[in-house]
Design a protein around this nucleic acid. Structure first.
Lengths: 181, 181
DNA sequence: CCATAATGCTTAACACTGTTTATTTTAATG
DNA sequence: CATTAAAATAAACAGTGTTAAGCATTATGG
């Protein structure tokens, strides 16, 4: 009987409503001002209701972050498609990472600057198959292709990938802090 | 009469006691678990007492951070003294920055990864004459000397300084997250 | 059609947080 | 010793994330 499916749909629509409200609140109020109670107020429900749709605050933030990383991956894919070669693809991907970071400050902060992290401990991050991790691996893949094509000096792929990520991440952080003057 | 001075000394000794307890609690419990109430419990006083010695939580964290930056500056000075030339001095200073960061994770997080920041808004950071800022300027000075000595390509000092800081900061962040495998 | 079961939501509480005000205790001074 | 100044506190305010218990409303099986 299709009633149960309709129930399920209703449930997921409400989930979406919460996520969208959370995203909006998150962007307007910033990470530290964001609260479950405030979100509940915004959607016109009791705080406890949110917990029927999300395990806890971290779960909600995780879902939001993952959706943003999906966007980043899309953007990186576009870079790869449009680029004439692997080096340019890598270059543009790194640029799109920085753009991604600076255009979603609160989310970027939540994903990378806070503790306890929404992506759990470093070990959990490495084990769990998140979109965040997927984006990183995609960057590493690009670097590998550059090495294979002789466009980048021969070296450990993980080393170069981490150097590159360290660079763009530091860049984003500096820009978010307004240290780029 | 020297009694008032002795009062003052007592006051400062108590301040130190709070700072030391806070530092210890900070390192053992981490940034997010640190609380004024927990600190008060630790030193055997009421939370309100701390507010007779520090304006608020941010003030206390600021003082702690500044003391750590004083250490960093000392370490950088040693690098400059021991190095044979400006380039090596810069190199060693950058290394000591990373070492500084990874050996004081909770403090580093508080100083750089949280919002609201203990160093206030980016504008306030640039205006206020903090030791944090002093350390940065010292690094820039080293870079300038390298350029002057022809050891570094001629370019805008602020640009190279920010590139370097971005690099080591990203490095520390990656290491703190355990992404260095 | 109605009793039963399940669902969705809320109320109320727990255990915290930072911070302030008024009050009491403690210590120093005239 | 009484008075005054300083230090510490109790109690409250306003907020946080989270959960267990209760109350409706809705769907289902007899």
């Amino acid at each position: 009987m299709g009633l149960k499916e309709k129930k399920q749909k209703h449930r997921e629509e409400f989930r979406r409503e919460i996520i969208e409200a959370a995203k909006s609140l998150f962007n307007s109020e910033g990470y530290d001002k964001f609260s479950m109670r405030g979100l509940a107020r915004k959607i016109g429900y009791t705080p406890a209701t949110i917990y029927l749709y999300f395990r806890d605050k971290d779960d909600l933030l995780y879902v939001i972050s993952e959706e943003l990383f999906a966007q980043l991956i899309q953007s990186m894919d576009r870079c790869v498609k449009d680029a004439p070669g692997p080096l340019e693809a890598l270059r543009q991907s790194l640029i799109s990472y920085v753009e991604f970071g600076v255009s979603h400050p609160a989310h970027y902060r939540a994903a990378f600057f806070t503790n306890p992290n929404v992506y759990g401990s470093p070990e959990e991050f490495l084990e769990k198959e998140s979109l965040s991790r997927h984006a990183y691996c995609q960057g590493r893949q690009l670097a590998a292709e550059c090495i294979a094509a002789g466009k980048l000096r021969q070296m450990d792929v993980d080393v170069i990938a981490q150097i590159l990520w360290t660079g763009v991440h530091g860049m984003v952080d500096a820009l978010l802090k307004g240290l780029g003057k």
